[in-house]
């Protein structure tokens, strides 16, 4: 299974999100010191979940990091996150690390 699919599956199983979107951004980092050839190392994840209700930003990201502990210890060199509650997702546009979804 691809790393992106694994990330998506784990987050779906653990957080039952309203939506989860995993973008492989490895191509943007090709050639950079910590980017291994072959990609699958730099990801951006947009996730909307009730599980984030009443958690501050740090706690939300820690929750995601814990679920993806094995991936972060292994193939994933960089993971940027946008963690929203369903209520926030209604009012905020996705902020997406700078591309897609314009």
């Amino acid at each position: 299974m691809s790393v992106a699919r694994t990330i998506e599956r784990k987050l779906t199983e653990q957080l039952h999100p309203q939506s989860v979107d995993v973008l492989d951004q490895s191509h943007q980092h090709a050639g950079h010191a910590s980017a291994p050839p072959g990609g699958e190392s730099h990801f951006h994840v947009e996730i909307v979940a009730e599980a984030f209700n009443n958690l501050n930003r740090v706690a939300r990201q820690r929750l995601v990091y814990q679920i993806l502990n094995d991936e972060l210890a292994g193939p994933v060199h960089a993971l940027s996150l946008n963690t929203l509650t369903p209520a926030e997702a209604m009012t905020k546009p996705y902020s997406n690390g700078g591309h897609n979804r314009k």
Binding site: R57, V58, R62, Y65, N69, A78
Partner: peptide, 20 residues
């Protein structure tokens, strides 16, 4: 208790990484 770099601290308090 945060697996990525960079990390910002302000007055001794952990604020977060680059997304935050």
């Amino acid at each position: 208790d945060w697996p990525t770099i960079p990390q910002l601290y302000v007055k001794g308090e952990f604020i977060g990484g680059s997304d935050i």
